[in-house]
Structure formats: C-alpha cells, structure tokens
C-alpha cells in the first residue's frame, strides 16, 4: 500500500535499489551485478531543496533517474503526492501509467550541449512538452514559450534560433525553461552547473533559487561540488557506493558531520582562501570501493580512520540518531567528527 506518513513530504523514496547486470561471453550470460543504488531511502519535503552528493559512481545520478523513472528501479518504492492529492507509488506504475505523472516531476540536465536537440529551434524545444501534453494550438504555445523564456532571463525574440547560437549558460537556461514548461512541482537537477564556467555558474544558481521562490518548486539537487550544494540546499544527503550514509540539515552537516565519510568529503574541499589553508591534512587514503564487488560490512570500512571490528563484518543501517539526522554508521553516537564551519 502506498502511503506517505508525513503530510509535508511530497516524495518518499523507500528502499530503492537498482542493480545493473554484468553480462559476459557469447551468450551474454549475467555474471554479476553492479549495485548502483543499494537500498536507499530519503524524503523530499514540499518546497525544499535536498542536495544529493557523493563522488562519481556513488549512485546519486542513478538514484535521481529512478525517481524520474527515466530508468526502472530494480525494487523499492517511490511514493509521490500528485497535485490532486493522490499518493502513487511511481516505481510500481507501467510506462503508460507513468505518463500523466511525468509532467509533475521534471529534470534539468548536466550537459547544456547534449541535452538540447541541435536540430530544433527554441520554440520547438521548449514547446515540445506542451505539444505532447495536448497544447496543439501554435499561438498558445508561442505565448507560453515566450513567457517561459522571459522567466529564465532569455529574450523571447530568440525563439526561432537554434541552440548553436547560444553559450553554455544560455543553453542551460533553455533547459530550465523546458523543465518548467509543464508547471512541475518537483525538479530533479542533475549537476546543473558543473559543466559551466565559474562566472556563469553563479548566474544559473541564482536563477534556480529565484525560480524556486517564485514557483514554489521542490528541488532534488544532485551535485558533487559541496560549495554549490551548501549554497542552495536546505538538507543534504550523502551517498557512498550506492548506499545512503548520512542525511541532515545543511548547516548541521557542515558544522558537525556524523559519518566519517562526510567528514572526509568536507575536509577535502579546497577553500578558495589562502589564509584558510589547512595546516594539518586529514585526507582519505585508498580508493572508492567497486560497486560490483563491495567489501564486507560497511562499504567504507577499508578507508575509514575510525574502523573497528564490527565495521568489517556487519552492514550498518540508516538510523535517525537525532531528530532529522540520519546516519548509517556503527559508531555515529560516540565519534566526535569535525566539520568545516563554526
């Protein structure tokens, strides 16, 4: 039965799992699985921004694409409250049943080049979601597209232009306009600024924050850049090798992380101020575990500076140790870890 416990939650992801089969040989036999997303749970509150962070291969992108049903999860629940108040488990719907719900959850892509069809004009790109969702009248579409382009800070006169006439930052705005065309309630942004130049990044981050205020959007913000995540997110969820390791309010997480991996991640971020150069360096050793063959026990144990015997044998589970603070570590309660802001 699909049920959302908390009225404030717009989306609840429970025990989401996505395994990719590894095939080998002439007959393409399955010889193993990459555990891209391995039993992950989190919630999205109405109107908030949840930052989903982690290093490459941690499964953050896969998890976000499952939420969008751009890929089908292996198992788990994705409970979503639709605009008319119904609760649906998106993971259980067929491709046909999902179509009416798609317009409520839209996506912003990382690459401003491959995400726009170079052979279509802005009008066709931004107008496509409108067209396929029943707005057949061209005049109406023209009006809505020009409204959307103004909203994201582009001149509506550019509607007949092709994407190749625009810079990376402008293309990203086009992508945002497309995502907003159907008045979605949730927007999944997959590294929306990481392909942009520093001076342009700030423009797009500001735009995303303004749009959220104006349109009461809920963001799932996937990123690897912790300073960007800090800027935009209300809460942060940290993933490591397909597992959720910690979820907390942004400031609390940056002040005092509860998971050793979060601590390491925060301390690895270079601070753009030479006067704050770190005197003692606490950097992780070793390599990220292979999601096709993760270690026994806690996946982080081979690199963890606080490792104990239990970590090598037993998998920890994600628990709420303080109100609103979820962590998946055997020693969460006893460790005193250091954040990077006072």
């Amino acid at each position: 039965m699909t049920q959302i416990d908390d009225q404030n939650n717009i989306l609840e992801v429970n025990n989401l799992t996505k395994f990719f089969p590894i095939k080998s040989g002439f007959f393409k036999r399955v010889v193993g699985h990459v555990r891209a997303v391995d039993d992950v749970s989190f919630t999205l509150k109405q109107g908030e921004t949840l930052g989903l962070v982690g290093e490459s291969g941690c499964g953050k992108t896969t998890a976000s694409r499952c939420v969008l049903r751009a890929i089908d999860p292996t198992s788990g629940q994705i409970n979503f409250t639709t605009s008319n108040g119904n609760n649906v488990d998106m993971a259980a719907l067929s491709n046909r049943e999902i179509r009416p719900i798609r317009k409520e959850i839209q996506m912003i892509f990382q690459d401003p080049f491959s995400s726009l069809n170079a052979r279509m004009t802005l009008l066709d790109i931004v107008g496509e979601p409108l067209l396929v969702n029943g707005m057949k009248n061209r005049e109406e579409r023209l009006e809505r597209v020009s409204e959307l382009l103004t909203l994201v800070g582009l001149r509506p006169e550019y509607m007949q232009r092709y994407p190749h006439a625009f810079s990376g930052g402008e293309r990203q705005r086009i992508g945002i306009a497309r995502a907003l065309a159907l008045n979605p309630r949730v927007v999944v942004a997959d590294e929306p600024v990481s392909a942009l130049d520093v001076s342009v990044q700030a423009q797009v981050i500001n735009l995303l924050m303004d749009l959220q205020e104006q349109l009461k959007l809920t963001y799932l913000f996937v990123a690897h850049d912790l300073s960007v995540v800090k800027q935009i997110s209300d809460r942060v969820a940290v993933m490591y090798v397909g597992k959720m390791v910690e979820i907390a309010d942004t400031n609390k997480l940056f002040e005092k992380p509860l998971h050793p991996y979060t601590e390491a991640l925060l301390n690895a971020v270079p601070v753009p101020d030479p006067r704050q150069r770190k005197t003692e360096k606490k950097h992780l050793s070793g390599e990220v575990a292979n999601p096709a063959n993760p270690p026994q026990g806690c996946y982080f144990n081979p690199r963890c500076p606080y490792v104990q015997d239990i970590c090598k044998t037993t998998k920890p589970t994600l628990e709420e140790v303080k109100p609103g603070r979820f962590v998946s570590c055997h020693r969460a309660k006893e460790l005193d870890l250091s954040g990077i802001i006072k």
């Binding site: 317009k103 839209q106 892509f109 496509e128 979601p129 396929v132 065309a181």
Partner: peptide
C-alpha cells in the same frame, strides 16, 4: 531522455 520525460 528529455523528450521521454516530457511524455513524448
């Protein structure tokens, strides 16, 4: 993917 998500 974008077109698919738009419901095309």
């Amino acid at each position: 993917t974008a077109a698919k998500l738009a419901g095309a």
